[in-house]
Structures are given as structure tokens and as C-alpha cells.
Write a protein that binds this DNA or RNA. Structure first.
Lengths: 226, 226
DNA sequence: CGCTCGATTGATAGTGATCAATCCGAGTGG
DNA sequence: CCACTCGGATTGATCACTATCAATCGAGCG
């Protein structure tokens, strides 16, 4: 999979305004100027060398993995401020694609590791990235293992609202298929769960944008421990 | 949950002989003399301060988490040579308990971090621990999201055989309930999946020990990507 | 010896996948 | 400008898988 540069103008897509500059990565080392990518662009593919770290500046990225039988699993969605691409062995386990028009900053992994060995603050920052992603993976495992479809969607909406720092209304750029593969459901079941939450007056939907009507109602459906 | 010292003699339990000394941790710093714990002992509880790292020297440890509604999720099993207890925020997200009589070495986390900042080899070792656990979490998410009960058990057996470096026959110290909570199944379904694999002549069972009869047959059931 | 807990097996019900049809919005070409 | 098309979203009907309820069995233990 080649890395062709994208051209879409982001300002016209409605996803501007968030973090316009890379924050996390910049604290760790020299960062390339953010590059623009169109929707559906592959940043890296499964088995590619894992020699860079990336930060979403604007838009959204998903990481996913294909099973031998064609089943797809979406491992995560990344919003502005999130770092992705940290993986072991020098080879990626997942591929990363843009969910919508997206601006991404990147930086050489070996450079960060070199700096981390010299600078205590960089090392701490790097660790906290790793630990944070491990923590999220753990929470997600709990969700996949034991939650019902409606619980999964409720949790997903709360997670997305928090990560996109949206109070009530926010746009979900990814498709129902993406959400399904993230939560281990079929796209039809995702649709039905949205319908259930809408019928219960917990959310309102308008295309791919969602408004949370009863935060507490959603939280009650989210049976994860504190 | 207090940390009462255990007394069970391990030699008499049939789990001796593996790695008799801590290997991984020792490469990172000074390690306490391994301590013995009886089956069912809590090493640390959810919400405890995460100020130590641990290495299983002998036996087995599971990490798990309780949902608000009582549902339990087992996040992982740790065999001799595995490190556990690395978590962010200074507070554990999971609790850790011994699955059977177990010998555990531990070491101060702050000490490791201090050494990692000074010693390149220690830092690399520490990162590879973190990356390895992130990788395993990713593989496990795939399994939880998309595999059937029989596929989950087949994968689980292959994983355990490899991690316990057993060729064909090995003992599974954990209960069916533990396996169920690890794979997101009920204990009955775990039993039935074992029965299916036995009926298909892929494995033989004798109490909690398993013999793999047809490695290829199990692998065919394991639909994860390479 | 009786108790309890874990494992297994059976019967039944519930949840979500699958197959299928329709609907809708955006982009396309006449 | 509008019909056409195509992919995503929604809803319906049915089926398969797994949870749940229940009973039995066996081993370890007091």
C-alpha cells in the first residue's frame, strides 16, 4: 500500500477547529508538518515497518486488522490529540486508515527513542502513551467480552463524546460498519441499538451526528467498574 | 484486600521445574527474593497503588476486573517469565490473584523507572514489556470480538501451549469459570467447547490437563490474521 | 460419610447474525 | 435539471449460537 499524499481541503468538511497543531508528539521531539489525507487513505498497512509515530491533528483515524477468513476488527479510533502507530517488533499488527479527511503529524520512532534515553521528560511522555493505550485496550476487552449490543453502543457514545470533548452534540464520522467491527457486532445490530436508544429518548440522531439527551440514562447502561 | 504471606509448598503441587529464578525483571533491576503464595491469594486489588512490578517465577496469576453489576472479566493469565502489574496513574485497573500455588518476584516500580532513565538496556527492556502486553491485548480483542466459542477455546489452547512451552500435553491450573471470564463465555459453553474438540479428536483431556492430538486441526480453527 | 464445589450434560429461551427488502442521500451522466 | 445509480442505513423475518436454568456426577475435604 503506497502512501500517496491527499489533497482534500479540510476546512470545508466541518472537522476543523479542534487541535490545529500537534501537541503530544511535539513534546517528544521534532515533528513533521501535518499532512492532509483524504477519506479512506491508508496511512500504513498490516506488516509494514513500524518506524514512525503519528498524531491526529484534525479528523479521525481507525486502526484495523483482517482475519484470515476476511473478518475485520477495528482496534481503535483516534481523534485529534491521539497518538497511534506505536507497535513492537518493527512491524505493524494493524493497518491505519483515515475515516474522513484528516490531518496527521508524524515523527521518526528511532528519533523519539533516542531522545527518550537522553531526556527524562520525553521518556515519561512516551511511557504514558504506552500505558494509556494499554489501559484503553483493557477497558475495551471488558466491553467486548461481557456487554450487550445496547450497552456497547451506549458506552461507545459516552467514550466518543468524552474523547471529542463534546458536551451533547457531536458528529460520528465513521460508518455503521466501522462501529460494528469495533464493537464486535453486525452493522444491522448497531442500527437497531441506535434505534433502541432513540426510542428510549436517550439520544437523538440526525444522519451521522448524535445528540445525547439523557447522559445519566446512558451511564446506567455502561456496566464497567470504577 | 490485605497481602498475607502464603505458605503452600510448591514442590508438592506439580508446578515446579520451570523458570526457578526471575529472568525478565532481573534484567531491569534489583529483585526481591521470590515469595510463595497459596492458591486464590490476592496480590493486589483493583484501586490499589500500582507501585510494584511482578514476575511469575512458578505457578500462574490471573488479572481480573469486576463490573458494577458483578460481571467478572479476566484480562490475562501470567505464566513463569511473564511480567504483570504495569499500569498507569499509580492505581491498578485490575486485581491480580494466584490461580494456584505460585512463586512471585517483585520489584519497586520507581526504582525501575529510575534505572531506565540511566540505562539504555533497562529502558529497552521496559518498553518491550509494555509493547508486548499491548500486542497481546490487541490479539485478544480480535478473539473476543469475532470468534465463536469453539474457535476461542482452540485459540486459547494454542496460546497456552505456546506460552507454557509445552509440546503436546500440559496442565491448565485455572477453572472453567476463569477460562469463561477470559474468553467472554459461560462456563457451560467452555465445557461444551472442550467436549466438541474432544469429540473431533483434536484434543484429549484428563481432569485439567490437556493433550493436543492434532495441532493443525486446532490451527485451522484459529481465524486470526498473520 | 455427607458436604461442597467444579465439571459436564440436557432443555429451553434470548440475543444477535444472517438473509432480504426498502429507503435515503450523494454523486453521476444524460 | 432530473433520472439513475450506488453505498450506507434502517427495518423485517428467520436462524444459529450461546446464556441460562436445571440435574447429575465426581473429587476433595471436613
Amino acid at each position: 500500500m503506497p502512501s500517496v499524499a491527499a489533497t482534500t481541503r479540510l476546512e470545508s468538511m466541518g472537522y476543523s477547529g479542534a487541535g490545529a497543531t500537534p501537541a503530544m508528539l511535539a513534546r517528544m521531539g521534532p515533528v513533521s508538518a501535518p499532512a492532509n489525507f483524504a477519506e479512506g487513505h491508508t496511512i500504513y498497512a498490516q506488516e509494514d515497518a513500524a518506524d514512525h509515530l503519528y498524531e491526529v491533528v484534525e479528523g479521525m483515524v481507525r486502526t484495523s486488522r483482517l482475519g484470515t477468513d476476511g473478518r475485520r476488527i477495528v482496534h481503535g479510533f483516534f481523534v485529534p490529540g491521539d497518538i497511534f502507530g506505536i507497535e513492537p517488533n518493527g512491524a505493524h499488527n494493524c493497518s491505519a486508515e483515515t475515516v474522513c479527511a484528516t490531518r496527521i503529524a508524524s515523527c521518526d520512532r528511532s528519533q523519539i527513542e533516542r531522545r527518550a534515553l537522553a531526556d527524562r521528560a520525553v521518556a515519561t511522555e512516551f511511557w504514558s502513551c504506552l500505558l494509556k493505550s494499554a489501559e484503553q485496550a483493557g477497558a475495551h476487552m471488558s466491553l467486548l467480552a461481557r456487554a450487550t449490543a445496547v450497552e456497547k453502543i451506549a458506552h461507545f457514545l459516552l467514550e466518543m463524546a468524552e474523547r471529542m470533548s463534546a458536551n451533547r452534540r457531536f458528529a460520528l464520522p465513521m460508518s455503521r460498519y466501522d462501529i460494528a467491527d469495533y464493537l464486535g457486532l453486525s452493522s444491522e445490530t448497531v442500527s437497531r441499538a441506535f434505534t433502541v436508544l432513540r426510542d428510549r429518548q436517550l439520544i437523538a440522531t440526525e444522519g451521522r451526528s448524535v445528540t445525547i439527551l439523557k447522559l445519566e440514562g446512558l451511564r446506567r447502561l455502561d456496566g464497567l467498574a470504577a
